[in-house]
Design a protein around this nucleic acid. Structure first.
Lengths: 151, 151
DNA sequence: TGTGAATATCAATTCAAC
DNA sequence: GTTGAATTGATATTCACA
């Protein structure tokens, strides 16, 4: 049993079972006849960049890596905090005013976040127009941006 | 100092500092004159659904929640595992054949994943055409899909 | 390099108090 | 409902060795 094969198996387990603890991996693997210790699982998890998430259910779940999304959100937040001027909502539209030069990057980052309430975004030098799926959606976007600015 | 204020502060710290351990939070808060214990931070982290990520640098970082991205990936993987028929690469293009009805949802999920090597995706009833940024990118997409199917 | 055994470190929970 | 102190529980690392 090579490390790589084991790690493939870990991924498979991750999507097919609820893994709360590293010991769960140890147990499930041993049911498949693969005997490793928690120490090895810990190393695998680090290497695979798996994460332990607080689950909605109240417990914890191990999950696949998520680095990119986080990076995007961080960048958007930082950019907003640096460049924000004003925000307005009308119907399903929003207009975000930002410091010159920041419109396109913010529009792009908003796109990348793939908010389900955003239909599309376009940014010129100092404005970002967002078309939301509804007025409700526009309000959600407002809330989201407020949060980022407040954080 | 209310819990909510403290949690806002935690978010701010998260984006402005590198937090490796819960004790880092305790220390940084106490520098701001806010005295709580690791137990409280642990509860905050659970409630805010923060995650401890294996960092590229080798250590660990606490980070903002990431549930949505994970959900998307899981859904894409499950859908692919259910509906996959074949995959082909030519130049910077790929054609994925799937069971009837699954093309649009897979195209959409692929879009949502925002793979940096994918330029654009379009799905009809049973096919998904992806335009990648390069032939290399197309190969990366192939690898990604293979992984999902293998997991 | 990869691993287990033991250990150290870190995180989650319990329990009492407010 | 919220917290700290103490504790338990879980995870990361060290060290020896294959």
């Amino acid at each position: 049993m090579k490390k790589q094969e084991r790690q493939q198996l870990l991924k498979r387990l991750l999507t097919s079972r609820e893994i709360e603890r590293q010991e769960d991996f140890v147990r499930l693997l041993s049911e498949d006849g693969i005997h490793v210790t928690q120490a090895t699982i810990s190393r695998d998890i680090k290497e695979m960049q798996l994460v332990k998430l607080p689950a909605e259910s109240g417990g914890y779940r191990y999950s696949l890596p998520v680095q990119k999304k986080i990076d995007t959100q961080k960048k958007l937040q930082r950019t907003l905090q640096n460049a924000y001027i004003s925000f307005a909502v009308q119907d399903q539209f929003t207009i975000l005013k930002v410091l010159p030069g920041n419109g396109p990057v913010i529009a792009s980052l908003l796109d990348q976040m793939r908010y389900e309430f955003v239909f599309g975004t376009v940014g010129d030098d100092s404005s970002v127009l967002t078309i939301c799926v509804s007025h409700q959606g526009a309000l959600q976007l407002e809330k989201t941006i407020d949060h980022m600015l407040a954080d």
